[in-house]
Design a protein around this nucleic acid. Structure first.
Lengths: 196, 196
DNA sequence: TCTAGAAGTTACAGACCGGTAACACCCTAG
DNA sequence: CTAGGGTGTTACCGGTCTGTAACTTCTAGA
């Protein structure tokens, strides 16, 4: 009984995973709950037994995305324990890989753009989770011994955010192609300013 | 007859202007043609007499946006004739003002995110117009006598793009607040590198 | 003043949306 | 074996969406 059934994931998790994937690819308003449940091999009723509404599902997807991001940060620490500068370079490499493979932007940012209503419940969550990621990057820069850690972290944040959206509007041959060079140049520049 | 009727703009232009405003505020999928025509003080039939489809209207709106951007560039040249460096600083100031006053991102980028279908007719137009703006900024940097003009222009592009989306996700107190300092620092740094 | 074309009005088609109700089913824990 | 909770199925509600048809009204120009 432990075999075979182990293959079968709980419907709630299937829905969540499928929804994340479809929201990411087609946008939130671009995919309906029917399409999600069908792709997840279940039905609408089961979705609404596990999630209060589509908005609720969206929020849960965003939380799952933040959770994945957390795992990424833990991987940096595991691969370069204690070496904060190496972790920063790993962050740049991860960001670049993300640009190469994905083609579509950050789920949080995309959601923020799509859900333009200022009082939309997801906006609170997005702001909160984005703020947490920012704090994390600032902390990493500071621990790497960089002066003006906030400014570097914010600049890198904007560069990545811009690269992800530019990738969608201008394309892969656009400004985003230079992301790594920009990021590494900035880090070197900020490190040099501290040494001087 | 020239008075009074002069106030009344042609329905097509009213629709176009209203659509631009509403698409900008609520997104493309967030506003229907009925809402646009009502806000423009006309009706759906008139819209479909002037535009083949909603997609066609969207494309026309994007072209109008690009046209406004062109006017901005001409203003730079008019205010600082021949002084390309001053024009570059004016670009930074304009971008910052845009961040302050607007709160919502670039129409082209927003549209690219929202219209995720890779074969959507608007995507061609977006790519084309964004590419033109990029070329323009590269040209300005080069004419300002900056070495690695492409790299500076692309970095500034990504910074602005990132600031506009960050403004929507993290908020005004987020990384986008430092945009001017970042941009001016970059310009100074690239100018310094050329002088050295 | 007459006329042609532009614009307004109403109604509708067909599809999709989020969300719910009622009921049948299956599988597992006891 | 049985009871019950999780799941699947079907049908439906009210609303909104893009787009069209047929008809009336307005208005500018000759």
């Amino acid at each position: 009984m432990e075999d075979g059934t182990a293959e079968r994931i709980r419907p709630r998790d299937r829905i969540l995973e499928t929804a994340r994937d479809m929201f990411h690819k087609h946008g939130i308003k671009g995919v309906g709950v029917d399409a999600i449940t069908e792709a997840a091999g279940t039905n609408k009723m089961t979705l609404y037994r596990h999630f209060e509404s589509k908005d609720d599902l969206v929020i849960e997807c965003l939380r799952a995305t933040a959770c994945s991001a957390n795992a990424m940060w833990q991987k940096f620490e595991a691969e370069h324990p204690g070496d904060k500068l190496a972790q920063l370079h790993a962050w740049v490499r991860m960001a670049a890989d993300c640009l190469m493979v994905d083609g579509r932007g950050c789920d949080m940012a995309n959601a923020a753009i799509e859900l333009s209503e200022t009082d939309h419940p997801a906006r609170r969550v997005i702001k909160e989770l984005k703020q947490a990621q920012r704090d994390r990057l600032v902390g990493l820069c500071r621990d790497a011994g960089i002066g003006q850690a906030e400014l570097l972290a914010d600049t890198l944040s904007l560069l990545l955010e811009g690269a992800r959206v530019s990738l969608q509007s201008v394309g892969a041959e656009g400004p985003s192609a230079q992301f790594v060079r920009m990021a590494e140049g900035l880090i070197a520049s900020f490190r040099g300013a501290a040494a001087r």
